[in-house]
């Protein structure tokens, strides 16, 4: 009898199969609340001709919190923002560019030159978000000493061609933390016969092709653990397919640019890249992006560029 009564208990338990979904929406009341913040991007360099600031709203994530401020156009800057840039002695206000709802706020650098070693302060205020400020110091230029170029001819993906490689070499300044970004192009000048008009004989035409060097995502460099040493960049490569047998190369030039970037820019770009790489990986730890925009998101960074060109052919 006892056995039966316990069996009944078990059966009752088993029939208590609550059939709700295993996926449920979390009560919005239990979600963390965050203060809406402005997104500001500004990068300054002594080589640039334009000073530009993007002032934008973030996209919404949780709930509707960020959308309560009005339907912002995400690719435009926030209307009516007051954007000022100061170098400690002079302050300039950057007007909106591109209409009432501006694409960005900016001025020509001739009106406000950017000088290496100087610290700049950016302030942005508008009606939608709390005012933000940010500071950065423009690093000095570092001249690269050499380009190490190489090439390898052979088939890739079934097609003949040549892969060109370039590494940039420079001397890191000792006793200070430095951050670099490397970029470059392979500029190839060729002549080849071109048919211009029917029934007119072909004539040789000179063409210049620019191939951006790919660094396989390793174009940001820090001198951590290698301070004061001679640094060599990752190998940049550009692949050129020889599909036209009539084409003749008459000139081959590597131009590689070393940007000495400030820490804010480095940390921001490096973490955003890393976040992008980890995006599709559900097992990766979330990447937190640091920002030097006080009270906001984004980056106020500075860089100083030096370019080296070598003629290969």
């Amino acid at each position: 009898m006892k056995t039966i009564s316990y069996s009944t208990l078990v059966v009752t338990l088993l029939t208590l199969l609550g059939c709700g979904s295993l996926v449920q929406e979390v009560d919005p009341g239990n979600l963390p609340t965050a203060t809406p913040k402005m997104v500001v991007h500004c990068f300054i360099s002594p080589q640039d001709t334009l000073l530009a600031v993007y002032v934008q709203a973030p996209r919404a994530v949780l709930g509707t919190k960020f959308t309560d401020n009005g339907g912002f156009y995400l690719t435009y800057s926030l209307q009516g923002s007051v954007v000022t840039l100061s170098d400690g002695t002079r302050t300039v206000q950057l007007p909106g560019v591109g209409g009432t709802i501006p694409l960005y706020y900016g001025i020509d650098t001739r009106q406000f030159p950017i000088v290496a070693g100087r610290t700049y302060t950016l302030t942005v205020s508008n009606a939608y978000f709390p005012t933000v400020t940010a500071q950065c110091t423009v690093p000095k230029a570092v001249k690269p000493t050499e380009i190490r170029a190489d090439s390898l001819s052979g088939r890739a993906n079934g097609l003949p061609g040549t892969t060109y490689y370039g590494r940039l070499v420079w001397q890191d300044a000792a006793g200070e933390a430095n951050y670099y970004q490397v970029s470059g192009n392979l500029i190839k000048t060729v002549t080849r016969p071109i048919y211009t008009t029917p029934n007119v004989p072909t004539r040789d035409t000179t063409l210049t092709n620019m191939y951006p060097l790919s660094f396989n995502g390793v174009n940001l460099i820090t001198d951590q653990n290698v301070d004061g040493q001679r640094l060599i960049s990752a190998r940049g490569e550009a692949r050129e397919f020889n599909y036209n047998s009539l084409e003749r190369t008459i000139g081959l030039v590597f131009t590689m640019t070393l940007s000495n970037i400030d820490e804010n820019y480095y940390r921001y770009r490096e973490t955003v890249d890393r976040q992008g790489d980890a995006d599709e990986n559900p097992f990766a730890e979330p990447v937190l992006v640091p920002s030097n925009i006080q009270g906001g998101y984004g980056c106020f960074g500075a860089y100083n560029q030096s370019t080296l060109t070598v003629k290969v052919k």
């Binding site: 993007y54 501006p102 820019y265 998101y297």
Partner: peptide, 18 residues
């Protein structure tokens, strides 16, 4: 908590202003 569009210098593109 939020997502936003991150930019950096380089790869400029044309766009129509308002």
């Amino acid at each position: 908590q939020a997502t936003y569009v991150a930019y950096s210098p380089g790869s400029p593109a044309y766009s129509y202003g308002q």
